[in-house]
């Protein structure tokens, strides 16, 4: 195998590279969203307007319903639109074209159309932006058959999965974690793609499995480091996509360790963690030595004040505490 050259880039640069490369590769790919055309405004879309022109890197009015529906139409008519939602909170104004249209059209029309649409949905807190600018809503969308949901946690995955998402012939909700935008990490040079539907072991370990979704995969890695200092060998697994969910990939780790913490930035009730805990116990019940424990945002809105926000949101420390309780 040829040696893969690595370099260190940030999560947002990795998104930017993926968009450049896929727009270069396929002229049917175009980008739409609020403020996407101005290079200076977001590192994820910087340079695209200058490189590809404003036909293909298209500012929209503040019309989430309108431009999301338009993207569904353009996708049915043979294009590959990539939407930039700025924040997933704003996407709530566009639920109909996503859940009622994009996800169902192929099925509802008996296979007559495909909807190759990518919705980039930056989300999350730790930024003192308050209840309507901090949410993590991916759990809502695993309830929508027909929609892929991708939750990348590091620069290599965000690049590789975004490129795969753009090549996918189905609608994809591509979640990006704003708290990870400046995270740096190794990314292979060249045409790097990652498979949709495959979990990844981010750190091997034998004593306990920490499953982290999106931003909390990062927190789980930090928690594993702290636990290592106390003699605990934690394994960190990142599902990377939650529709489809690689249940076997997650269960394999739990069969090995017998204990599991699931961490997510979304709210606990009805969350992705709840779905993972249920699926993993169905697949690996015999191996579990303790109940699966969830760490998640508390079931209140995310407040602005730094101190209050920290109470509500999950953290490395909360994951460590949950793991230690399980191991005690």
């Amino acid at each position: 195998m040829p040696e893969v050259k690595m370099r260190t880039i940030s999560y947002s640069t990795a998104i930017n590279e993926a968009l450049h490369e896929e727009m270069e590769r396929d002229e049917k790919v175009f980008l739409m969203g609020e403020d996407v055309a101005l290079s200076a405004i977001s590192p994820a879309t910087a340079g695209l307007g200058d490189r590809f022109g404003h036909e293909r890197v298209r500012n929209t009015p503040i019309s989430e319903l309108g431009f999301t529906g338009a993207a569904v139409g353009a996708a049915m008519a043979g294009y590959r639109p990539v939407l930039d939602m700025r924040r997933i909170d704003f996407m709530m104004l566009a639920i109909d074209p996503i859940a009622n249209q994009a996800a169902k059209l192929r099925y509802m029309l008996g296979g007559q159309v495909s909807v190759p649409l990518v919705i980039r949905a930056p989300e999350g807190g730790y930024s003192q932006n308050g209840p309507t600018h901090s949410q993590c809503l991916e759990a809502w969308f695993i309830q929508v058959p027909g929609l892929r949901v991708i939750v990348p946690s590091d620069p290599a995955d965000v690049k590789g999965l975004l490129k795969s998402a753009i090549r996918e012939d189905n609608p994809v909700l591509f979640v990006e974690y704003r708290s990870l935008y400046s995270l740096e990490g190794p990314v292979p040079e060249g045409d790097h793609t990652e498979p949709i539907g495959k979990a990844a072991v981010k750190k091997e370990g034998a004593d306990i499995t920490l499953i982290g979704i999106g931003s909390q995969a990062r927190s789980c890695l930090e928690a594993a480091e702290l636990l290592a200092g106390e003699g605990v060998d934690a394994e960190v697994v990142d599902p990377r996509t939650i529709n489809p969910l690689d249940v076997e990939g997650l269960a394999a780790s739990v069969r090995k360790t017998g204990k599991c913490v699931v961490a997510e930035e979304g709210h606990k009730s009805g969350g992705v963690g709840a779905e993972i805990a249920a699926s993993v116990q169905e697949a690996a019940f015999g191996s579990l030595k303790a109940p699966i424990v969830r760490v998640a945002a508390l079931d209140v809105p995310v407040p602005v004040h730094t101190k209050l926000e920290a109470i509500v949101l999950p953290s490395t420390e909360k994951i460590v505490a949950a793991a230690k309780k399980l191991l005690a």
Binding site: L65, G66, F67, T68, G69, A70, A71, V72, G73, A74, A75, M76, A77, Y79, P81, P97, Q101
Partner: peptide
């Protein structure tokens, strides 16, 4: 909106 997208 979908018609707008087909027009686009």
């Amino acid at each position: 909106p979908m018609a707008a997208g087909i027009g686009l």
